[in-house]
């Protein structure tokens, strides 16, 4: 079959009209998204807001981690959340109950957030309210370990959650997502004694197999609440971000 137009004439015999030319383009397919992401990043940098893109499978505890984070830091760090889900306002509501500003993006059938969706959300969700500047904006992406990895939103940091109720070989199964991570959080770590098949060491080994030096830390935002190492990491990131902003 002809590869040019799919007709039944063998490819080498297929005539090409004289007015056909091939032009070299060599442009990234994500250029339009990346351009919008750059625009978002400029917007974030104007208020000096640190933006963290939170990604994981559905149900690995992103919202719960944010609820507990809000409870612990909201008196000293001004945080806000953009939620991405296919439907419902539920997650944004959960965060508002913690006294945090939250905006829900309902993606409909889209399995990921993209820079344009975030851009549009920012029109309704300012980073400065009553003279108060948002220190950290969390973007909780749609629960999905595949698609969100391909779309830059303008964030400064990517955090990927891996819960102990999943397989510890997830980094090997979803290399694109885990390679994009600046931090991997092993969530629901209080369940480790009951999860015989999940070994943190094996998860770390699978992550190293991707040729990355990404740090790994554990959180338990459930009953045995312990997210101290995460809060410490957040504080460190915020300090680092502010220093970088001053230099820039």
């Amino acid at each position: 079959m002809c590869e040019t137009c799919g007709c039944s004439v063998p490819d080498q015999n297929h005539p090409t009209p004289a007015d056909t030319h091939t032009v070299e383009v060599l442009r990234g397919l994500m250029d339009a998204n990346d351009h919008a992401a750059g625009h978002n990043r400029e917007h974030f940098n104007r208020t000096g807001t640190l933006v963290i893109n939170l990604m994981s499978s559905p149900g690995s505890g992103k919202t719960q981690l944010l609820e507990h984070t809000a409870r612990l830091v909201k008196d000293r760090i001004n945080i806000a959340v953009i939620e991405g889900d296919l439907e419902t306002e539920n997650d944004a509501e959960r965060l508002r109950k913690q006294g945090v500003r939250a905006h829900q993006i309902a993606t409909g059938s889209a399995c990921h957030l993209d820079a344009h969706l975030v851009h549009r959300a920012l029109h309704d969700f300012p980073l400065e309210v009553d003279g108060q500047i948002t220190d950290i904006l969390f973007i909780e992406n749609v629960g999905n370990l595949v698609c969100p990895a391909a779309f830059d939103l303008g964030q400064h940091v990517n955090v990927v959650l891996l819960s102990t109720t999943e397989g510890d070989d997830k980094p090997a199964k979803y290399p694109v997502m885990f390679r994009a991570a600046d931090l991997v959080v092993i969530s629901k770590s209080d369940l480790l004694p009951y999860m015989d098949d999940f070994k943190v060491e094996r998860a770390e080994q699978a992550l190293r197999g991707l040729g990355v030096e990404t740090p790994v830390l554990r959180t338990a935002a459930g009953r045995q609440e312990d997210i101290a190492s995460w809060i410490e990491w957040l504080d460190g990131q915020l300090t680092k971000h502010r220093q970088q902003q001053q230099v820039a």
């Binding site: 040019t4 009209p17 007015d19 091939t22 032009v23 070299e24 383009v25 060599l26 990234g28 397919l29």
Partner: peptide, 19 residues
Amino acid sequence: ELLLARVELHGVSRHPTNS
């Protein structure tokens, strides 16, 4: 990589009458 490398275009001849 995720690149558009090249595109074959039709109808760009300077003499488009004799096609």
